[in-house]
Simulated scan of single mutants.
Amino acid sequence: MAYQGKIQLIYVIVAPPDQADEGDRLFRSHGPWMEATHHRDGEKALLSYNVSKAPELSNPMDPDSAPTGNTCFILSEIYETDAGVADHFQMSESSWQDFPALVKWMEKCTVTGLPAAPIINSLW
């Protein structure tokens, strides 16, 4: 399914070695909460949800480069419209028990991302 024109929430979280286990714990909690709470159709629909994890590499353009010791967590959510992202953040704060822990964890990591970016290219 192509997602051009939909809205993507995406974060890359680089966790130092002592924070990787907490990232694993948080995302084990996050997935079931997302599945139980998010809309599947309409303007607030969550169309795609993915979390990936890999060692951070010393040269991100060379898959054979040495790992730094840090762990990268990549969170990607795609919504039908901005209304889905707004709904997501409202629900996160009000109903996900680990939201405060996520905020504290992210303060100990390096985070890059955007809460709502329109998708300009998409295939399949």
Rank of each mutant, 00 (worst) to 15 (best):
T71H: 02
V85M: 14
D98M: 09
D62A: 14
T81V: 00
I74Y: 07
F73K: 11
T68F: 02
P100R: 01
S65Q: 00
F73Y: 13
E43A: 07
T68Q: 01
G84N: 04
S58T: 14
G42Q: 11
P55I: 00
I74H: 11
P67I: 11
S76C: 14
P100W: 06
E56R: 15
D87A: 11
P100C: 05
D98Q: 09
K104C: 00
L46K: 14
L47A: 10
S58A: 07
S76K: 08
L75H: 07
K104N: 06
P60I: 10
M61A: 08
T68E: 07
A101C: 02
G42K: 12
L75R: 04
Y79D: 03
S48K: 10
E43N: 12
D98N: 08
S92A: 10
A101V: 02
M91S: 12
T68H: 06
S65F: 00
I74L: 15
A101Q: 04
D62N: 15
V103W: 00
F73Q: 08
E93T: 10
S58P: 00
A86V: 05
K104T: 07
A86D: 10
P63I: 12
A66Q: 13
T68I: 04
A86M: 06
Y79G: 05
C72I: 12
L75F: 03
P60Y: 05
W96L: 10
A66K: 15
A54W: 05
S95F: 01
E80N: 06
K104Y: 05
E56G: 08
P67W: 00
D62I: 10
S94L: 11
I78R: 09
V85I: 14
A101R: 05
P67R: 01
D98V: 03
S94A: 13
D82R: 05
F89P: 00
A86W: 03
T81L: 01
S76Y: 12
S48L: 15
P100E: 03
K44V: 06
P55E: 04
S48I: 04
G84Q: 13
N59L: 08
G69I: 04
D82A: 08
D87L: 06
M61Y: 14
A101P: 00
E43M: 13
A45P: 13
S65D: 02
E77S: 11
V85L: 13
F89L: 13
E77N: 13
F99S: 03
L57R: 15
A101K: 07
N50I: 15
G69F: 01
K53I: 05
Y49E: 14
A101W: 01
S94C: 04
K44M: 11
N50L: 15
V85H: 13
D82M: 07
W96Y: 10
Y49L: 06
S76I: 15
W96I: 11
P67H: 00
T81E: 02
G42N: 13
L102A: 09
D62E: 15
I78H: 01
F89M: 13
D82F: 04
L102I: 01
E43L: 01
V51R: 03
T71I: 09
L75I: 07
L75T: 07
A54Q: 14
N70V: 06
S52M: 12
G42S: 07
F99L: 06
D87I: 01
S95N: 07
E43G: 05
S95L: 03
I78Q: 11
P55D: 15
Y49T: 08
E56I: 12
M61S: 12
F99M: 10
I74F: 13
A83E: 12
S94Q: 13
A86T: 07
D64C: 11
N59R: 12
S58C: 02
D87C: 09
